[in-house]
């Protein structure tokens, strides 16, 4: 299987459509016959990332490369950036406002969940410029 490259624009103003890029990737992986537990790990990590882009960064781009043995998901935004990544990784730490919490997110579990489900979670961020999250999930 050659690598499959997918690209999505994540609309930062639309909470209703948030998660649709992940939905599409999940369907693709399922269609390729990837082990359901791996598909779920990829989907949860990417979904949390996609939600983060909508609630914190006004959207961005999702680039996904599917290889025979792994998936690499890159989530790129030009939002406000993360001043202290170590702090942001702590379960329960959140800068989300009440509106976001009322929607069921912003509990400070997004980044910890991404780290938990992906085999590698690399966060590069510059305040005022944006954040790129790379999620690598190896197939079992």
């Amino acid at each position: 299987m050659d690598a499959i490259h997918l690209e999505y624009d994540v609309d930062g103003k639309n909470f209703v459509s948030a998660g649709s890029a992940t939905e599409s990737v999940k369907a693709q992986l399922k269609g390729l016959g990837i082990n359901p537990a791996d598909v779920r790990r990829v989907a949860i990590a990417m979904y949390e990332g996609e939600i983060n882009m909508v609630i914190h960064a006004n959207g961005g781009k999702a680039m996904v490369d599917i290889f025979m043995d792994k998936v690499i998901v890159k989530l790129i935004d030009t939002g406000k950036g993360i001043p202290d990544i170590e702090q942001a990784m702590k379960p329960g730490f959140s800068t989300a406002d009440e509106d976001v919490r009322n929607l069921g997110f912003g509990a400070g579990m997004g980044l910890p969940n991404m780290k938990k489900y992906a085999d590698e979670c690399i966060i590069e961020s510059e305040v005022g410029k944006g954040t790129t999250v790379t999620l690598i999930t190896n197939f079992s």
């Binding site: 069921g104 912003g106 509990a107 579990m109």
Partner: peptide, 21 residues
Amino acid sequence: SDVLAYVKDQAVLLTGLCNPQ
């Protein structure tokens, strides 16, 4: 996010939230 944090093969979700997420 709490639901997403604990994967246990749960089949049913009970919730008071009503949005598409």
